[in-house]
């Protein structure tokens, strides 16, 4: 069996528009909450009928008791329709799908690098790291504007993480892309191959730079990829990414990949 996903009927418990166009959903789905691990995703049915036809893949941003959490940005018609959902709604989910982030026993430092809505799976990982392990934790968050801080702040507390917030609009201490800051901070904090691991999710152009920095510092790096999907379970081969040794399915071989296993010949 390549996954243990099943179909779940969940209830939307709460909905919050964190910043304009980005929503946080809490869904009651006990079995799914129990089985899920950070990095995994669900295929969510937008509505009954045939249009939109396909389910939408969304990363879990956390679990809490009997609930699972989603943090998503309205990008197309599917997410637009989801934004109009009201609490109490019954929702069909398939999950948990895909692999998950690996936390090696030997690591002493976890460096999380998130870009915009790519923070979603890393917030889930952050929570597990805080709960389960005593280690040095770094959270780099890159966003377009300062107000996107609301996506992560509140979830990431300063006692648990060394937090670096980088914005393109320059309203924060660090200006530019998160990847402009990453190498310098790794240098300054003397984070290197010894017992460190980088975890990253965000736009592919960002991931490519993170992978390059990780390679330069010889730090293992796990990236979570995003792709349009039809089945989400490894059947249709629609969501492949170029990897060393051939195409890999983002849904079933990923979404988390060792950055060294991928061909980074796209933007």
């Amino acid at each position: 069996m390549i996954h243990n996903a099943t179909t779940h009927t969940a209830e939307l418990v709460s909905k919050r528009e964190v910043i304009p166009g980005t929503f946080h959903f809490v869904l009651h789905a006990p079995a799914l909450a129990r089985q899920s691990r950070p990095g995994q995703f669900v295929m969510i049915q937008v509505q009954d009928g045939t249009d939109p036809l396909l389910r939408r893949p969304l990363s879990l941003s956390g679990t809490c008791g009997d609930t699972v959490e989603l943090l998503f940005q309205v990008k197309g018609r599917g997410t637009q329709l989801m934004a109009a959902w009201e609490p109490g709604r019954s929702v069909s989910l398939i999950g948990p799908l895909g692999n998950s982030f690996i936390i090696p026993d030997v690591i002493k430092t976890a460096v999380l690098v998130a870009g915009g809505i790519g923070a979603a799976p890393l917030l889930y990982l952050a929570k597990i790291l805080v709960e389960s392990r005593d280690l040095q934790r770094e959270f780099f968050f890159g966003a377009k504007t300062g107000k996107e801080r609301a996506l992560v702040e509140g979830c990431i507390v300063n006692e648990d993480f060394e937090y670096v917030f980088v914005t393109e609009d320059g309203t924060q201490k660090f200006q530019g892309f998160v990847t402009d800051t990453l190498a310098g901070e790794l240098e300054r904090k003397k984070i290197n191959a010894k017992g460190a691991c980088i975890y990253s999710c965000g736009p592919s152009s960002m991931l490519k730079k993170v992978a390059r920095i990780a390679a330069a510092y010889n730090i293992p790096c796990q990236v979570s990829l995003e792709a349009h999907m039809a089945c989400g379970v490894g059947a249709c081969l629609g969501c492949v990414v170029e990897a060393r040794g051939g195409f890999k399915r983002v849904c079933a071989d990923g979404p988390v990949f060792d950055s060294r296993a991928l061909e980074w010949n796209y933007d």
């Binding site: 939109p52 036809l53 396909l54 349009h228 039809a230 249709c236 081969l237 629609g238 492949v240 195409f247």
Partner: peptide, 23 residues
């Protein structure tokens, strides 16, 4: 067979297009 380069699928009204390329 490796099949086609991605993107390989796109949703269309009540349907989807695929160009997996028989991987």
């Amino acid at each position: 067979s490796q099949g086609n380069l991605p993107p390989r699928i796109v949703e269309t009204p009540s349907g989807m297009l695929n160009a997996i390329g028989l991987q």
